[in-house]
Design a protein around this nucleic acid. Structure first.
Lengths: 215, 215
DNA sequence: GCTGTTGCTGACCGACCGGTCAGTCAGTGG
DNA sequence: CCACTGACTGACCGGTCGGTCAGCAACAGC
């Protein structure tokens, strides 16, 4: 009998084997840059320096490998952002500024994970979307909304805007920047595309204070 | 042979034949929802109700078909937005409000085109990104930036923010909404996810007036 | 009649796909 | 020493991929 090909449990933490690690790394890189269908098991095997059959020894099939890559990316990404949201103190506006700046920085540093998750979000079915909202983004988003609510309660932020909307707007600029920065760089007048930190600072300022001139 | 001399072709592009139209429509739907690699020529042929060989009769290969689908999507999308930006009159702020609202509406109505173009933007190489910036988004973006500059010159908008940054922020909310609305719907407190028009109105208001409480 | 030309098709091709299988090899407990 | 195990591999499977090609039906002009 060959090795038992039991399915990897999505909730419990399976064993991160030694040889499987290289496969996961190679697969993450390829899946993130080219997408699921454009990456063959042969390509992953070659990139990982192992035989194709070896991948099937560690993962039951291609989909299971992809899900495992996605799972690790989600947990990694989620943990980093939650950590960032928790530790801060001081005025809410300063905490928001810091978080937004860190968020874009995190996207750019963990580009592969971010791309993988985004790909999943952008083409998810309704059922998948609900799962993503609850198990991947729920905690982070709720934490951010709580922070905004606190800012409203303390009179730092306008209370007549839904806090969730503010959260979305704060993240929208970052995500658009992350997604389109290569194109942005070639648009006229968008020289901020080359400087993420400057973009985040200016965008957050604009959103906080408004772009309309107060008479 | 271009025997159809009775029909004046509006663009320099080749004529969209009768039988080729069905292929283009089927291909656009499939490419938009599943991506290039996940769609086979067999699937396109079946969806279009023709033989696979017929596709190769009208298009030299899969890539050429994809590029043709992309080209028509780009020209269609671009023309609609440019038209919207040109005709308006009145205060700049009102024109911006109207444009942003129409932009999200356009994204949702032409979901397939929008998805196709986004897919291209998000995974474009540097060379492709430059081409997209110059030939697809350049005109629209520049027009929007000009409108913002006019608003700044007339004292309607703050002049200390780069106009291109304002343009990006105005579009960012819409695009994030379009991309993540399925996930958004399941996030706590984001009930605006079900009402695009309301989202756009509130988001634009927030951006125009700022979310910080003015003492 | 014949002769292109055009739109279209079924049959087919080599390459590659995800996945399987028999078997090798190093380690290890008894 | 042996028996067993898990990591690993080359060869191979059926099936599908993008793409080709000879040919058919319809229709024009001669």
């Amino acid at each position: 009998m060959p090795t038992s090909s039991d399915k990897p449990d999505p909730s419990a933490a399976p064993l991160p084997s030694e040889g499987a690690r290289a496969i996961l790394v190679a697969a993450e890189t390829l899946f993130a840059s080219r997408g699921y269908d454009a990456v063959s098991m042969n390509a992953i095997a070659q990139a990982a320096g192992v035989s194709k059959a070896n991948i099937f020894h560690h993962f039951s099939n291609k989909k299971a490998l992809y899900l495992e890559v996605l799972r690790s990316a989600c947990s990694h990404e989620s943990a980093e952002l939650l950590r960032e949201l928790e530790q801060q103190s001081g005025p809410v506006i300063e905490r928001l500024r810091h978080f937004v700046g860190h968020h874009l920085d995190s996207l750019l540093r963990n580009e592969r994970s971010a791309r993988l998750i985004q790909r999943e979000v952008y083409q998810s079915s309704d059922a998948q979307a609900k799962e993503l909202a609850e198990h991947v983004f729920g905690a982070n988003f709720e934490r951010l909304v709580e922070l905004i609510k606190a800012g409203q309660a303390q009179g730092e932020l306008r209370a007549d805007i839904e806090p969730a909307l503010i959260a979305v707007l704060l993240l929208a600029g970052n995500i658009l920047f992350f997604d389109t920065r290569r194109v942005l760089r070639h648009l006229p007048g968008a020289d901020f595309a080359a400087d993420p930190a400057r973009f985040t600072r200016m965008a957050t300022d604009a959103l906080l204070q408004g772009i309309q001139l107060n008479k």
